[in-house]
C-alpha cells in the first residue's frame, strides 16, 4: 500500500483554530494560506482539508478525508457511523431545550412544537421518551423562533447561555452533552491503522 499523507478534514471556524493550536503545541505547524482550503505540514505527513462543518461527515463517509474533527451533534444528524478515536477537551457544549423565560414547560405526552437545526436528534430524543413532537426546521438564529412566536421551544446547542439570556430565553432541560472527536472512516482506518494509532497517541492531551 502506497504511503500517502493522512488526510484530515477540519471544520471551518473556531474548531479549526483549536486543532491547529493543538498540532502546533505538539510541534506540527500548518496554515491555510490565501484562502486555500488544502494545507500540508512541513514534512507532508498530513494533508488538511477545510470544509463546512455540516459537510464534514460527507467527505469522511466517501473516504475523501480519512480522518476528521467533528462534534457528535453533526455526526448524529448525518446518520453516519465512524470510529471515534479521540475525545478532545475543547469544543464541548450541551444540547438543550429552551423557551421564553417564565413559559410553562412540563414534559408530558402532550405534543411539543420545537424549532431546531437538529431535527434528527430532536425527533429521536423525544420518540424515545414517548413524547410526540412537531419539528420546525431552521438553519440559523433559532433563538428567534420563540421570540417571534414561530414555536414555543427550541432545541439548540448552548455554550455560555449568553445568546439565550439576551433574547429573554431560558434552558428548560439539558438533553445531551456534546463532545468533539477525532473520527475515522472505518475503511481508511483499516488501511492506515498503524499511522493513525501513532497520531492518536501523539494528539492525546493527558
Amino acid at each position: 500500500m502506497k504511503e500517502l499523507p493522512l488526510t484530515i478534514a477540519l471544520p471551518k471556524g473556531r474548531l479549526q483554530k483549536q486543532v491547529q493550536e493543538l498540532f502546533a503545541k505538539k510541534g506540527i505547524a500548518f496554515d491555510f494560506e490565501d484562502r486555500k482550503l488544502v494545507a500540508y505540514d512541513k514534512d507532508k505527513q498530513f494533508k488538511f482539508i477545510l470544509v463546512k462543518n455540516s459537510d464534514l461527515p460527507v467527505y469522511l463517509k466517501h473516504g475523501i478525508a480519512g480522518l476528521g474533527v467533528c462534534g457528535s451533534d453533526v455526526v448524529y444528524e448525518s446518520g453516519d457511523e465512524f470510529y471515534k478515536l479521540l475525545k478532545f477537551s475543547f469544543g464541548g457544549t450541551t444540547m438543550c431545550l429552551a423557551g421564553m423565560k417564565g413559559c410553562d414547560y412540563s414534559e408530558s405526552d402532550r405534543k411539543l412544537t420545537v424549532a431546531t437545526k437538529f431535527t434528527k436528534f430532536t425527533e429521536d430524543y423525544y420518540s424515545k421518551l414517548g413524547v410526540p413532537v412537531e419539528i420546525i426546521k431552521l438553519n440559523g438564529s433559532v433563538e428567534l423562533a420563540p421570540v417571534l412566536g414561530l414555536a414555543p421551544y427550541i432545541v439548540d446547542l448552548v455554550e455560555t447561555g449568553s445568546t439565550l439570556k439576551a433574547n429573554n430565553l431560558e434552558i428548560f432541560k439539558k438533553l445531551q452533552e456534546i463532545s468533539v472527536y477525532l473520527l475515522a472512516n472505518p475503511a481508511y482506518f483499516k488501511i492506515h491503522y498503524k499511522k493513525i494509532e501513532k497520531l492518536v497517541e501523539f494528539l492525546s492531551e493527558d
Partner: peptide, 11 residues
C-alpha cells in the same frame, strides 16, 4: 473478512 483499498470509503 473484509477487503479494503484506498478511496473506497467502505469494504
Amino acid at each position: 473478512f473484509n477487503a479494503y483499498t484506498n478511496l473506497s470509503g467502505t469494504a
